[in-house]
């Protein structure tokens, strides 16, 4: 492939090859094909998230209450700041990518190397941040009870209105069973780790502490979660069957299970795109260093991976809006 400058086309030679339809090279067009189809894939995912949300519009978890962590600030309620930071990191790595493409047009190998390097660093920080976000989400914060119908019951102090973690009020009951390990009893039989407290322990602690009330998933007309009175709470807790700590694909202490499923699936799929983007950028980065494109006479490969990288940024803009803002 030669340089992507517009060459005057000889009309007699239209069918003889060498013509560029739409004034773009083959590789770039194929990258655009991929991006358009991937954009439709992502919109399918985000729209199905919207479907589930509209279906459960009166009980969907409130993102501000779910993502409240910031590195090194323990116990500080910092909604959104961390994702905002992640967004800036990704936009910034997009900028260094355009600068690399621009330097490539001017055949400045040193600058392309530097900007590609910065882009890779930005992408790596972003993937790391996403892993940290996942870790917090999976670990959970307060814990909750789940009823037979799959509804989540969370606990509040009715004087302060603050959430209370299960471990803070549950009363230890002697003789409650522990996690069955493979080294005990029947050979090779194990089970997944039991929650740190049992339903009976939570119930005993709840009944003895007069200040505690239950908050259910349902949203009131102001968009806040409904808080039950003490009497209603005492009745409601009898419906609880399971202790839920953190979130996975089956249980979710923050509320609706589908929220966790979509969170894992969509941010996971996006994170996978970022990860593969970092790998592809690394390959191109080493090609730049060994001078492959200098010899080829143009840096169009940098432009093509750049398109992919910006697309990943573009998708994040939408994921950010629909998971964290709206």
């Amino acid at each position: 492939m030669e340089v992507a400058t517009s060459t005057p086309t000889d009309q007699t030679n239209v069918w003889g090859g060498g013509m560029r339809p739409l004034n773009a090279s083959y590789g770039k067009l194929m990258m655009w094909f991929f991006i358009v189809s991937d954009a439709l894939t992502f919109s399918g995912f985000l729209v199905s998230y919207g479907f589930s949300r509209y279906k459960n519009i009166d009980s969907w978890p409130i993102a501000d209450e779910v993502f409240t962590h910031f590195p090194f600030l323990h116990g500080v309620d910092a909604p959104m700041y961390y994702v905002a930071l992640m967004t800036f990191i990704l936009i910034f790595s997009s900028v260094t990518m355009v600068l690399a493409v621009d330097a490539g047009h001017h055949m400045q190998k040193g600058k392309v190397t530097l900007y590609m390097f910065l882009t890779i660093i930005g992408g790596a920080i972003f993937v790391g941040s996403q892993a940290w976000e996942w870790k917090n989400f999976i670990k959970g914060e307060y814990g909750a009870l789940e009823t037979k119908g799959g509804q989540i019951l969370q606990f509040l102090d009715q004087n302060t209105g603050k959430r209370i973690a299960l471990g803070e009020f549950a009363q230890p009951i002697a003789g409650e069973r522990t996690t069955h390990a493979g080294s005990n009893g029947v050979w090779y039989v194990t089970e997944s780790e039991l929650p740190s407290v049992s339903v009976a322990e939570v119930k005993a602690g709840f009944e003895s502490n007069e200040n505690l009330v239950i908050r259910i998933q349902k949203l009131d007309e102001n968009g806040h979660k409904t808080v039950l009175s003490r009497a209603e709470s005492l009745e409601k807790i009898n419906a609880a069957t399971t202790v839920v700590e953190g979130a996975n694909l089956i249980h979710n202490e923050y509320g609706n299970r589908l929220f966790a499923d979509f969170f894992f699936f969509i941010t996971g799929f996006h994170g996978f795109h970022v990860f593969s983007g970092v790998i592809i950028n690394l390959i191109i980065f080493f090609n730049v260093i060994v001078g492959t494109y200098e010899k080829r006479g143009h840096y169009e490969m940098v432009e093509k991976v750049g398109l992919y990288w910006h697309f990943v940024d573009l998708v994040w803009v939408f994921v950010f809006t629909f998971f964290y803002l709206v």
Binding site: P21, L22, N23, A24, L29, W32, I35, V36, A39, L40, S43, G44, V47, S48, G50, F51, S52, R53, Y54, K55, N56, I57, D58
Partner: peptide, 29 residues
């Protein structure tokens, strides 16, 4: 030409998908 072939399919298909799927979600609610 390239602008249109990238943007138009997305501009037509995505709002359509959003419209029918969200309407269905609201109905199920």
């Amino acid at each position: 030409g390239l602008k249109g072939s990238i943007v138009l399919p997305l501009l037509i298909l995505i709002p359509y998908l959003v419209f029918i799927i969200l309407l269905e979600g609201d109905y199920i609610f």
